[in-house]
């Protein structure tokens, strides 16, 4: 008797979870690996996602209301701060690193150029409290939301309680960011079987890329998430060593994904290169030797002018129109 009841109950639960409207359907891309994020601790719901989106685009997360997450992570530029070498925050203050894309974060074992944060749910505290980004305190932001006319109700809809806790606040933001999945570029369609969607030059570029770049910019995510020194000239920023305090990690940065790279200039952790052409010139003949230079780059990469053009053509096939125009990801 009891077990029947449980079976009936689990059916009920199951049907609730899959009930979400067609437009909200949330599936992981079939050609991607298993995500790092543990979705069992934060079930994505329509209400949770929409709350997260509202928070992401709301300046209430900053000290004076002027800066939202969306001010620096702009959808049309694949959620980067297109055109800014280093981030540009509250009171026009500058940060020291380039804004990376908020994209496919469910697969990132660590966040930030130096991997300082290991859990997406704990991420948002950093921009909120960074004096040159949003310059507020998390506890104060929570108090502002508690006193707001809409938010308590929206939290109730999303999490069943109008009490705004640290946990629910951070998980709502995660729900929005987890859905920012870019997996539908022309290259993806090629991978999924449409052989003719890439032209010959792009296919040549792909071959050259696989030979010269894909050890680090690996797999469908275009990164192996390791920390490496790719031979750019280094100044003050110690990179990974800021987190580990180990000499062997000095000047190493996380290998960035190259999805949507054609629309996310400038490049590198400090935004020093303004074009893909400049990046390729770097790899071809500007590698700076140093003790932590990645062994893979110790030998010169030989690419002709036309090889260079092919690689750039290939990188352009990684632009995902749907990702940058999907209305569900935009400020409503």
């Amino acid at each position: 008797m009891k077990s029947y009841f449980i079976i009936a109950l689990s059916f009920l639960l199951f049907s609730c979870l899959t009930e979400d409207s067609e437009e909200f359907k949330f599936t992981l891309p079939s050609h991607f690996p298993q995500p790092e994020y543990d979705f069992s601790k934060n079930k994505i719901t329509k209400e949770g996602f929409e709350l997260g989106r509202k928070l992401f685009y709301d300046g209430i997360l900053s000290r004076d209301g002027s800066v939202s997450c969306g001010s620096c992570h702009i959808q049309s530029s694949a959620f980067t701060h297109h055109g800014h070498d280093v981030s540009h925050g509250i009171d026009d203050l500058l940060g020291d690193r380039n804004t990376p894309a908020v994209m496919n974060v469910a697969w990132s074992p660590t966040l930030f150029w130096d991997g300082g944060v290991h859990d997406l749910d704990l991420f948002a505290i950093s921009p909120i409290e960074n004096p040159v980004e949003m310059d507020d305190k998390l506890s104060n932001v929570l108090d502002k939301l508690r006193g707001h006319k809409d938010y308590p109700n929206l939290f109730k809809k999303a999490f069943g309680s109008s009490e705004i806790t640290t946990d629910h606040f951070l998980k709502a933001l995660s729900q929005f960011q987890l859905r920012l999945i870019s997996a539908n570029s022309r290259y993806d369609q090629f991978l999924l079987g449409d052989q003719n969607i890439l032209n010959q030059e792009e296919k040549n570029g792909l071959k050259l890329f696989e030979k010269n770049c894909a050890t680090c910019h690996a797999g469908v995510l275009f990164t192996d998430f390791s920390f490496r020194n790719n031979g750019i000239k280094h100044f003050g920023d110690l990179g990974r060593a800021r987190i580990t305090l180990q000499e062997e990690d000095e000047y190493k940065f996380k290998v960035p994904s190259l999805r949507n790279v054609a629309i996310t200039a400038p490049f590198m952790h400090d935004g020093r290169f303004y074009s893909l052409e400049a990046v390729l010139n770097h790899y071809i003949d500007q590698i700076t030797p140093s003790k932590n230079l990645d062994p893979l780059l110790k030998n010169k990469i030989n690419l002709s002018e036309s090889d260079k053009k092919s690689i750039i053509s290939f990188l352009q096939t990684l632009t995902d129109k749907e990702f940058i125009t999907n209305r569900q990801f935009s400020e409503q």
């Binding site: 300082g116 290991h118 909120i128 929570l142 640290t166």
Partner: peptide
Amino acid sequence: VGGAAQGMYWSWNS
């Protein structure tokens, strides 16, 4: 981290 531990947490280096 958004309550009692406010100020006793490094967010950039969890």
